[in-house]
Design a binder for these strands. Structure first.
Lengths: 212, 212
DNA sequence: CTGTGTGAAGGCTTTCACAGCC
DNA sequence: GGCTGTGAAAGCCTTCACACAG
């Protein structure tokens, strides 16, 4: 649906699952397990073993037949594939309720992402509490993106202005957007968008609930 | 991946898009437009026209050839398909950072969902600010679910306890879970789970960023 | 003539099943 | 013997293209 410039050719769904595998591996590592079979890792990640092997085949022959995968070697390889995001600075655009909530939540930091600044049309507006990072005005966003070479943005602005803001940050150099606004963003081919629409996630559950 | 008890046979992806169509329709309605073609509605929803027609065909012949779809009739039909969630009470389990953030965010209420209570292992713990609803202890969750006949839960507990909490609420009658914990939940066939893992969404973007 | 509804085609993902290597 | 890597098969979803209704 949304353009994605695959560097090589790994499907988006596979990349997503690699992120899941990476997490599962960290848990194994914490338990001092250093070899894992596709069956075991697949179970930990909630997929079928064949799927896992197919996915891992995209990044080369890393398993040992008869034995399984080295937890540390596989971790390292996945870090290399996915790691870009963890090392990249991230900005948050739209410091309203949801934006501040995400900043306060701490889950991103815990996972190794650094949100280095937030931007808002009304930077001086009162915020729930100290956010730990500065909230800048939208006028400064262009310079900031270019100077710090920011490529990833979390978009938490109201739906009606999301497209306009997206155009702006893309033109300044943003290449990947995690979009929380309830808007289908039109972006150039080379920009990736992941949409998270909380209300839709909740709503679509309704259909599957048993009647009566 | 996760079991879903389709009432009839509409695919999960189609149900999700119906939720998107519903929103697009509300915008049209707000602009007093009362008939819309598949081309126009598809553009508003960010899909191809043929896809939209296929999706809508699951719920019957609602279009008029040569004319298009009635905005109000289609809205009503979609409300009926999806509406269950909006009319259902929802509980939030895990009133930590993310849980409180979601409560404060207001997006759910704005979309018509009513979160009627929150539960936490430490209900008396200090919360960022007044949440507008009561935070109850986990001991009370079973009675609450049964008495109020709650079927939908938002799960925002820490990863390590997510499975255990899920087992518990499912055994009390929860049939649909919006899961924010970084855990692959094992649930019975008839329970639906939508996973939202913010860190993974962000991380998987990394791969698609241009090199150099 | 416009625009839906839909079989058929095409493309993508997952799963199977087994050859090949340790 | 155990487990990976992978063609081939199956399944699912999307897109096309056109018959047909208004």
């Amino acid at each position: 649906m949304n353009g994605a410039s695959q560097r090589q050719s790994i499907p988006k769904k596979t990349v997503y699952r690699m992120s899941v595998y990476y997490r599962a591996l960290q848990r194994l590592r914490a338990n001092s397990i250093d070899t894992v079979s596709s069956v075991a890792l697949a179970r930990a990640a909630g997929v079928k073993p064949a799927q896992l092997r197919k996915d891992l085949a995209y990044i080369g022959h890393l398993g040992t037949r008869g034995l399984g995968y080295s937890v540390s070697a596989l971790s390292e390889k996945l870090t290399h594939i996915l790691g870009t995001a963890r090392l990249q600075p991230v900005i948050l655009v739209g410091a309203g309720h949801l934006g501040c909530a995400l900043l306060g939540y701490g889950g991103f930091a815990r996972e190794g992402f650094e949100v280095i600044a937030a931007f808002d049309a009304e930077p001086k507006r009162e915020r729930p509490r100290d956010l730990g990072i500065q909230v800048l005005g939208m006028t400064e966003i262009g310079n900031f993106i270019r100077e710090k070479n920011v490529k990833i943005a979390i978009l938490t602005v109201p739906g009606p202005v999301a497209q306009e803001v997206a155009n702006r940050i893309v033109s300044e150099g943003i290449q990947a957007i995690l979009n929380f606004a309830p808007t289908i963003l039109q972006v150039p081919e080379e920009v990736v968008v992941n949409n998270v629409d909380l209300a839709i996630e909740l709503e679509s559950l309704g259909y599957f609930i048993q009647e009566h």
